[in-house]
Design a binder for these strands. Structure first.
Lengths: 343, 343
DNA sequence: CGGCGTTTCGAAAACGGTTTCGTAAATAAA
DNA sequence: TTTATTTACGAAACCGTTTTCGAAACGCCG
């Protein structure tokens, strides 16, 4: 705690606190000569303003919150980078909250935001989140919220997403072109927007391509690792197992590679795999993983920019808009493309 | 901003603000019946206390800061998980700051902390950081700081690290046992504690094993990707290139795999590779990567616990202690172990 | 020189809680 | 019954800023 306050600085300079405060804020009411005097005195005494006194009075915290399911994920960590880059530039601080995919936790976090602790919120909802009523309440309390990647239908606000439907569609087309007749969609619970849209793209592609519907066409993974493994193992151990797999979220990739090793299923010969992921090591995997690479940094940056646009308005209101940033399908050997020169 | 304040709640209950405040704080001065009355009223009106008013008066922010070089790294993201787990449990908020390996940024961040914005700081210093004078100043201002992973010699405080020297030593022993005669150490600038200790372990092992010293025994990577590539390419393109590589930080792994693909250098036949990393995909890489796996979550958790021990003291002082949590050498094919059953 | 508009600054009231201290009532001790 | 002590609450000061508003001081013009 910086022991030196405005009052002390004022006394040291034989000025009033009002004058010093205004001088430090570069107010037009103060003449240049005293401003420089104050600046100098502040530097000399090592004055650092108390942010809480300031926030209390100004009703603004210079802080935003980022709430997301987890941080140990290449998409989210890159998105944080994007967010941080603009927060830094705007002179804002960023609080981070992890929901670990639990709705209850997400609700508790949002409840806190009604206090005005943060000026704005960036959120990627948990896989349990449905209605978004808790987020609506935050918006109602006057703090702008923008969704990124995983959005929520209820609250009308800005969201920055990728072209989930189209990416998924393209992925299935690529799987089919690589010889798949029976691809499986591996997803989180489908109340999640991204799962829903990716699933729709998957199904539309299936229909358009005239691929036959089959059992285990869609596998839903929950939070229990063992159960997920069992589910996937069962699907892959069938008489007519799937010959392609579209993995909806990064952390499920390891299940697939793990089980294929265990069950001696050769990728891509017996099973072709595509995953939504930003893993830098995808190209060095065995075999190199075909990915739907999302512009994670860009999404974070764009979402943050949208938030700050709202914060700069007097009304703090945010446009109800959907910003779509395209993902790229990066073809590698896990779908049977050229066996040499990965990358 | 929650429109309902303590004063309004007090008026609604026909009580004084003092009583309501104390009731919500579960003070012994207030009888149970009025406490429940207040709780009920607060719930009814949706009262959420203003954290800034509270922080200002109590001189405590219920907030800690985590400052680290980057977040897109499996070690740091897992460490954040560990930190968040205990912050949540303690009811604290966590601010995140990224230095992107820049000392100037780190100094600016630390300067801010003199304001009392946070009650404590967890820091993993940038690769440019030397003296730690800026961190000393934060400690002097009364906010406890604990280092994790990347420490700094100057300031006397707690730090939580892994057994860098020993891990490095064991890694070299393993490289030698796998047939390496000329291993190279790939590092960040060595003013970094981890680089220094890992380098010392590397060199001690070289000496103990009687391995000959050679040119390009140590390669220092900076921030420029192209330069790093050139440096490594030059080393690997020599007449007598290194036959082993100990990679000090995760993000450098891709350079090695990339260049080996480009230069048609076979891992592990021509070059054996070990890296300090927590990548979940290490076992699925081509070839599966031998790693020194750090207990990242545990390190984060332990560092946070140490910080909270200090925060619970009246003095806020922190023991000058070094907590070492051991890493594990996980042998895989990149150092030539059994070519089947990776994992 | 008086009136008027600008500068430039200070006193004081916020901001929304917490905490100290005083006090009245209730209870215990004598 | 009187006195000491506890219990339960409220008035007001306080945390460290920002901001409103008033008031000197100054320059300008007629």
């Amino acid at each position: 705690m910086s022991a030196v306050t405005l009052k002390m600085l004022a006394k040291h300079l034989s000025l009033s606190v009002a004058t010093v405060s205004k001088a430090l804020a570069d107010s037009h009411e103060i003449r240049q000569s005293t401003k420089t005097l104050v600046i100098e005195g502040a530097r000399e005494l090592g004055y650092v303003g108390n942010p809480y006194a300031s926030s209390l009075r100004k009703r603004a915290s210079k802080t935003i919150a980022v709430v997301l399911p987890e941080v140990a994920d290449s998409f989210f960590s890159e998105a944080i980078n994007g967010i941080e880059s603009v927060a830094l530039q705007e002179g804002y601080h960023v609080l981070i909250y992890l929901t670990h995919e639990h709705l209850a936790r997400e609700q508790a976090i949002m409840e806190e935001f009604k206090s005005g602790r943060v000026d704005g919120v960036l959120v990627s909802v948990s896989e349990e989140t449905g209605s978004g009523e808790h987020i609506r309440r935050v918006l109602d309390s006057g703090t702008p919220v923008v969704f990124f990647d995983r959005v929520c239908d209820g609250p009308g606000t800005a969201c920055v997403i990728t072209d989930d439907f189209e990416s998924s569609y393209r992925a299935v087309v690529h799987l089919a072109a690589s010889g798949c007749r029976q691809p499986t969609f591996l997803a989180t619970p489908t109340n999640l927007s991204i799962s829903m849209n990716r699933l729709k793209g998957f199904e539309k592609a299936l229909a358009d391509l005239g691929l036959p519907r089959h059992k285990d066409e869609v596998l839903i993974f929950g939070k229990n690792e063992a159960e997920n493994m069992d589910l996937l193992r069962a699907a892959l151990s069938q008489p007519r197992p799937p010959d392609g797999m579209l993995v909806c979220v990064e952390k499920h990739v390891t299940y697939v590679y793990q089980l294929c090793a265990e069950l001696r299923i050769c990728i891509p010969d017996a099973l072709k795999v595509i995953a939504f992921t930003n893993l830098k090591t995808a190209q060095f995997m065995s075999p190199p993983l075909t990915t739907v690479s999302q512009p994670a940094f860009e999404i974070g940056k764009t979402a943050a920019a949208a938030l700050f646009r709202a914060l700069k308005r007097a009304s703090k209101t945010i446009d109800e808009e959907v910003i779509v940033i395209k993902s790229a399908l990066v073809k590698r050997e896990s779908t049977g493309s050229s066996p040499v020169s990965p990358g």
